[in-house]
Computed example of a mutant assay.
Amino acid sequence: MTRFAPSLPLLALALLALPILPSAHAQTAPATTTAPATAPTGERIINAITVTSTQGYKITVPGGWTPLKNAPNVDVAFVGALRPTVTVTVSDTPPELKVTLADMRDLYASQMPKDVPKLKMLGEKIIKVSGQNAVLWSYTGDGDGGKVRWTQVFTLKNNRLYTVNFVAPVNTPQNLLDSGRAILDSFALTAK
């Protein structure tokens, strides 16, 4: 049930938020590059990368995940073997709207059935990210290459909305699912 009545300012907010909603097609595009399984003699193997963004967050990605350059509508994106992806999106909300996490949750929930074909919500939980309340969702739906599962975390701090998506085909091996969840769990806010 929506917690706010539609109004012109909230409609504007909805339009601002639309690019950060999960797209069934954009999130499941195949990787164009893959990380080497072993490094040639004399080269180092990268075990993990920590991205510290000027947008006010950091996230750690284990070895075997490849950064995607020029991914649309996201701050950073990584792809693992067999196409699971992790993306981080940051969006500022107008301070005069006094948007709450509950408002964003309701906006996302109302938009998801339009954006995710055959949406099936698996769970919702309130968690903490760097002391801030955050919403954790798990859901499935149809993607570009078949059925996929999303695990999504979003939080709001100082009128800035942070959304982290982990998307994987439903037949993804458990070790890759665990790796993707570890990336989500590493997400932390650095903005004051």
Rank of each mutant, 00 (worst) to 15 (best):
Q55L: 10
G56P: 09
G56Q: 04
G56I: 04
Y57Q: 13
I59P: 09
T60D: 10
V61M: 06
V61I: 12
W65M: 12
T66P: 02
T66F: 11
P67T: 12
P67W: 12
P67V: 13
L68K: 12
L68T: 11
K69W: 08
N70K: 14
N70H: 13
N70D: 15
P72D: 12
N73H: 09
N73Q: 11
N73D: 14
D75R: 04
V79T: 12
V79C: 01
G80R: 08
L82M: 08
L82P: 00
L82Y: 07
R83Y: 09
P84I: 06
T85W: 02
T85Y: 01
V86N: 03
V86T: 05
V88G: 02
V90K: 04
V90D: 02
V90E: 02
S91D: 00
D92Q: 14
D92S: 13
T93C: 05
T93Q: 06
P94G: 03
P95D: 09
P95C: 06
P95R: 09
P95I: 06
E96F: 15
E96W: 07
E96D: 10
K98L: 09
K98G: 12
K98S: 08
V99M: 12
L101Y: 10
A102D: 15
A102T: 13
D103I: 13
D103S: 06
M104S: 04
M104D: 02
R105H: 14
D106T: 06
L107D: 01
L107Q: 07
A109Q: 12
Q111F: 06
M112L: 15
M112Q: 04
P113R: 03
P113F: 03
P113G: 03
P113Y: 04
D115Y: 06
D115P: 00
D115T: 09
V116P: 01
V116T: 07
V116E: 00
